[in-house]
C-alpha cells in the first residue's frame, strides 16, 4: 500500500510518500521532501506568515513528490495529514491541502498525531523495537514509553519545549534562523567551554525551561552591556559561545536525567531520540554516555527524519489505516493540543 503524508504543524512543510510492501518487510521511502519557512534573524516565525508559506508551497511539493516517487494519484491508498499538535494556521493549511487531495483523488483521509509520527518513523528507521522515546522539538518535550496500545507520557516539559527555549535564545543572540536556529546554537556552542551557573529544573520526571531561558537572556544582556566579562574560575573572557555551551550542557543534562529516570522506572535500556532537537550531536553524545553506562543503547535518526517531515506522517497514517482507521471529511479537523497518549495504537499489541 502507498500513502502520502502532509506535515505542516510548524515552519517546516513536508510531503512524503511511503510504501508498505504487501507481504511485510521494511517500509520503502518513495519520496521525502520539505521546504522550511525561515524568518529573519532575531524574529520568530508567526503563524500567519507560516501558513501563507505552506499554502504557497504545498501544491508544488506534492507534484514534486509524486514525480520523484514515480507514482500517480491512483496509486495512492490514503492521504495522511497532521491533525495536531502544533500551530493553528499552519496546521490548517496542510489540512486543507489534504482535504482537497482527498476530494480530488477520491481517497480516504487519515489524521495523524505529529508525535506518534516521529515515534513510528524513528522505530522503523532505527529498528529500535521498544525503546524509551525522548521526543524533543521546538514545540514538544516528552519522555514516552509504550504500554498497552498507548504511547504513555512519563515526563514532559511543564512550560515550554526545550527547542523553543533554544530557538528563543537564538533570537536573543540574533543568530540566523537558517537552516534552523537550534543548529546554529549548536555550532556556536562547540566553540564555547566555560560552564556558567544556570538554574537546573528537574522535578520528578518533569522539567521546565522558562526559568533557564530567563537566566540566560539576562546573561546575554549583561554580556552585551559589558563585553569584557571574564569567567570567575579561569579569568578568561566570556563569549556568546560560552552562553550557548552552558545552555546546551544544562538543558541536555536535564533531558538525559528524565530519560534515565523513565528507563529505570520501566526497566528499559533502549533510547530513541526523535524530533528536531534530536539532531543535536551533543545531545546524542550525552544520551549515549548515559545509556552506555547502563549497558544500553541509543538510536537517533538523521535530519531527514528527526526534523519535521511528511514521510513520518505517511508512515504512521498508513499503519493506522491498515488497522481500519480513517478520518471522515467532516472530522478532518486540526487541533493545537493533541496529547500523544490520546492515540490508540492499534497496530501494536
Amino acid at each position: 500500500m502507498i500513502a502520502i503524508g502532509l506535515e505542516g504543524s510548524a515552519n517546516k512543510l513536508g510531503v512524503g510518500l511511503i510504501r508498505h510492501p504487501p507481504k511485510g518487510g521494511p517500509a520503502q521511502i518513495l519520496a521525502n521532501i520539505r521546504h522550511t519557512y525561515n524568518s529573519p534573524p532575531g524574529e520568530g516565525f508567526l503563524p500567519k506568515d507560516t501558513a501563507k508559506h505552506h499554502r504557497s508551497w504545498v501544491v508544488n511539493l506534492v507534484k514534486q513528490a509524486l514525480k520523484e516517487a514515480g507514482v500517480s494519484a491512483a496509486d495512492v491508498d490514503c492521504i495522511c495529514y497532521t491533525k495536531g499538535p502544533g500551530m493553528g494556521a499552519p496546521l490548517q493549511s496542510a489540512a486543507i491541502a489534504a482535504r482537497m487531495l482527498s476530494l480530488l483523488w477520491d481517497k480516504p483521509l487519515v489524521g495523524v498525531n505529529h508525535c506518534v509520527g516521529h515515534i513510528e518513523m524513528g522505530r522503523e528507521i532505527t529498528g529500535a523495537n521498544n525503546p524509551v522515546v525522548l521526543y524533543v522539538s521546538g514545540g514538544n518535550t516528552q519522555v514516552i514509553a509504550y504500554a498497552e496500545q498507548r504511547y504513555r507520557i512519563f515526563g514532559e516539559a511543564l512550560d515550554i519545549a526545550v527547542g523553543n527555549c533554544l530557538d528563543r535564545f537564538a533570537r536573543t543572540l540574533e543568530i540566523p534562523n537558517d537552516p534552523a536556529p537550534g543548529y546554529n546554537i549548536e555550532q556556536l556552542a562547540k566553540k564555547g567551554k566555560h560552564l556558567l551557573d544556570l538554574p537546573y529544573t528537574v522535578k520528578g520526571m518533569d522539567c521546565s525551561f522558562s526559568g533557564i531561558l530567563a537566566s540566560i537572556d539576562v546573561l546575554a544582556a549583561q554580556l552585551k552591556a559589558n563585553p569584557n566579562q571574564t569567567d570567575a574560575l579561569t579569568g578568561e573572557p566570556i563569549t556568546a559561545a560560552d552562553l550557548c555551551f552552558s545552555l546546551q550542557e544544562t538543558v541536555f543534562a536535564m533531558l538525559v536525567e528524565i530519560t534515565e529516570r523513565a528507563m529505570a522506572h520501566v526497566g528499559s535500556n533502549q533510547v530513541l531520540v526523535v524530533g528536531g532537537v534530536g539532531c543535536n550531536e551533543r545531545l546524542q553524545e550525552m544520551m549515549g554516555l548515559m545509556a552506555k553506562d547502563r549497558g544500553g543503547s541509543v538510536y537517533a535518526t538523521d535530519e531527514r527524519f528527526c526534523i519535521d517531515n511528511g514521510i513520518m506522517i505517511a508512515h504512521a497514517g498508513l499503519l493506522a489505516y491498515r488497522t481500519g482507521c480513517q478520518t471522515a471529511l467532516n472530522d478532518s479537523t486540526c487541533t493545537q493540543r493533541y496529547r500523544t497518549d490520546e492515540v490508540l495504537v492499534k497496530w501494536r499489541d
Partner: peptide, 9 residues
C-alpha cells in the same frame, strides 16, 4: 526507492 531500514543509524 529506498527501504526505510537501508543503512540504519
Amino acid at each position: 526507492m529506498a527501504a526505510a531500514t537501508d543503512n540504519p543509524p
